[in-house]
Amino acid sequence: MNWQGMVRRVIWLAPENGFFFIIDRETVQLLSAEPFAEVTWASHYNLATGRPVEVPGMDYSTESQFVAPSPYGAHNWHPMSHHPETGLVYIPTLEIDYLFEGNSKPHQWGQWNTNTTYSADLMGDDAQDQKDIRQAARGFLTAWNPRDQKAAWRVHRDLAWNGGTLSTAGDLVFQGRGDGYFEALDARSGASLWTFPTQAGIVGSPMTYAIDGEQYVAVTVGWGGILGQTYGLDLGSGLQPPPSRVLAFKMGADHELPPLKPARKRPKPPPRVTDDMSILSQGAAVYAEYCQRCHGQFAVSNGRIPDLRRSAETVYSAFNVIVLDGGLEQLGMPAFKDVLSSDDALSLKAYLIDAANDDWEQRPVSAQ
């Protein structure tokens, strides 16, 4: 690229920490490091030393702090793309408010050892709390101009977890969205030009190819990954989770996706175990620490992994065998007897049955 009047061979990098780096790939000199997303942990980078200048008070080892970016990063694994004609880099961007809390508990083999705590207080006590927490996770498609070291435009996404980007010579940028749409945007302005409802969210990256001179664009459809699992999005549509698949598009095609199948009838939960808030709070804390990364925030699953509020009676009757002894290890559910006691399992069961009853009572009768 032309950098300050000189052509430099460079590396462009938009890592999780929120700064867009331009590095001379021959001398390894740091040429630029500007934030492309919300960043609170550092004010800037010292170009002479290549080190960040940290913001005082953001060290959460002594006191909990909201720090941006979150552990999911400002840009995760989803590939960005570059358009040589516009000069822009198109970055799937995340801005998530996240409370970091220090944790001094000892190392636990096979568990989440990041020296941070998943706070049960963040799980929310009602629908509004849950909505507020989800809205704190914001997604964008950022068109970054490396030459000007700033964004040319940004497009807001309803969900933070979206797919990688593909930019084409036709001045298009393709991206799959977490809310279940595949979209083509104007590479220069960010204006939406075309969308297709894919029935499921997308985190994969588009690609393009040609057969006999006809161009196709294909993308893998299926909303998974760590944030897809933990998000806590209720599939309250009355339909089964959409299948994961590859979709291919070309100009003039008119195929439609087959309709989704009705969801299986939800089992009525057993009666609440207790109204003792100390037990329910303990169960919420256990769930936040050990369960929500797979089964979703607020005990709400996206359907790829079982929603524990809608478990069959056989699951509750064999709860300790499953949770503590690993009765379903062959299906990917590990045993937790090394880190959880029978009292922990009892409180977790009480919490899940309580959440199941809340879910049953809050849904319209027609959905039951």
Rank of each mutant, 00 (worst) to 15 (best):
F336H: 07
G87I: 07
P241M: 00
S311E: 11
V339M: 13
N357E: 11
S301F: 05
R138I: 05
F100M: 09
V286N: 00
F21P: 07
H75I: 06
Y72K: 08
G283T: 00
Q108I: 13
H295F: 02
D179T: 12
V7K: 14
A288S: 07
L88A: 04
P267T: 15
Y60S: 12
T230Y: 03
E361D: 15
N357C: 14
G170T: 01
W109F: 08
A285G: 01
P146T: 01
L308R: 09
G50V: 07
P56T: 03
S43H: 06
I202A: 07
P35E: 00
A284N: 01
L352I: 10
P243S: 08
L141K: 00
A248V: 02
S119Y: 13
A299Y: 04
L308G: 07
V217M: 04
S167P: 07
A285I: 00
T27W: 05
V10C: 13
G57S: 00
N2F: 13
D126T: 09
G110W: 01
A367V: 04
D307L: 02
N113I: 14
S342P: 04
H75C: 08
K261W: 01
R157Y: 13
A184N: 06
K150P: 06
R51I: 13
F336Q: 05
D338E: 14
D254T: 11
Q240R: 10
N17M: 05
N357H: 11
L122M: 13
D158N: 03
L352Y: 13
V365M: 15
D254Q: 11
T208K: 03
P242K: 02
W77P: 05
P69K: 02
D24H: 04
A350I: 11
R157W: 07
A218Y: 00
R8F: 05
G87M: 08
S205F: 07
G204T: 03
A191E: 15
L172N: 14
R272A: 11
Q229A: 10
I22T: 13
L328T: 03
G224C: 08
V300T: 01
M333Y: 08
D186N: 08
P52T: 10
L13D: 02
G178N: 13
A48C: 09
T142G: 04
P267H: 09
P69T: 07
P267K: 15
Q282S: 04
Q4V: 13
P35F: 02
G180E: 02
L233Y: 09
P84L: 03
A248L: 01
A143L: 10
V315C: 01
A127I: 06
D148R: 15
Q282W: 10
G224M: 14
S301M: 12
L235F: 14
D179P: 08
F20V: 10
K265V: 00
G303E: 04
Q297I: 11
N145A: 15
D97K: 11
A48T: 14
I96V: 11
V323R: 00
G73Y: 12
N320D: 15
L185P: 12
L99R: 14
S347F: 05
P92S: 01
I91F: 02
A169W: 05
V10Y: 03
E313I: 04
H44E: 15
D97I: 12
